[in-house]
């Protein structure tokens, strides 16, 4: 069944409700529990993790293994349960939250708090890793950052933006 998700950045997004990702524990510091993954055209690396219930709340996420070679997350039995994962045949998707530094405009990813998605059940959980091995601000790019701009953009009308957005559910 199709549902309409209101967003401040993309207007109304129409999406099949089986593409909604349940995060019972939410993102750390936030209470929202349902998200969708959106991907603009011509872009394979970054996705928007958009809240279904809060139009303003969206994170930019990316696959950490593409940037941090050897990056690994070991899940605890409790986390397997929480995600509804079968320990014998678990397939997960790792995502990390991407941040822009206010001071330098540099892009970093949070390797300390990855998001683990179970695509089979469409559940996800943000994990806080405790071992001190990974950085909370791991630099994303090797080339110098462009000029930062913090000005608010106009939200594009829904009809136009709908065509520009596809979900990556098929890749999940």
């Amino acid at each position: 069944m199709n549902v309409h998700v209101m967003t401040t950045r993309f207007g109304a997004v129409e999406i099949d409700d089986d593409r909604i990702i349940e995060m019972p524990d939410g993102m750390a510091g936030f209470t929202e529990q349902r998200f969708i993954l959106l991907s603009p055209d011509n872009n394979g690396r970054f996705f928007w993790l958009q809240s279904v219930d809060n139009p303003e709340l969206a994170f930019v996420v990316t696959d950490p293994t593409a940037f941090a070679p050897g990056y690994e997350v070991t899940l605890t039995p409790d986390e397997y349960d929480r995600l509804g994962l079968d320990p014998e045949s678990a397939e997960v998707i790792l995502l990390t939250v991407t941040t822009i530094s206010r001071e330098t405009g540099e892009y970093t990813i949070n390797l300390l708090g990855p998001i683990v998605v179970n695509p089979a059940k469409m559940t996800a959980k943000q994990i806080v890793l405790e071992n001190g091995k990974y950085e909370i601000r791991y630099p994303l790019f090797t080339s110098p950052a462009p000029e930062p701009s913090r000005k608010k953009e106009e939200v594009r009308p829904a009809a136009a933006s709908l065509r520009k957005i596809t979900t990556i559910y098929s890749k999940l």
Binding site: R9, M27, A28, G29, F30, P40, N42, N43, R45, F46, W48, L57, A58, F59, V60, V97, T98, T99, I100, Y107, N110, L112, G113, Q126, V128, I136, R137, L140, F141, S143, A145, P146, S149, R150, K151, K152, E153, R156
Partner: peptide, 23 residues
């Protein structure tokens, strides 16, 4: 991690576009 999440939730579309260009 909570602070970083709050900070990360401030992206605008222009920031995203620049990230895509840079990558």
């Amino acid at each position: 991690v909570k602070d970083e999440n709050r900070f990360a939730a401030e992206w605008e579309l222009a920031d995203f576009r620049r990230a895509v260009e840079q990558i």
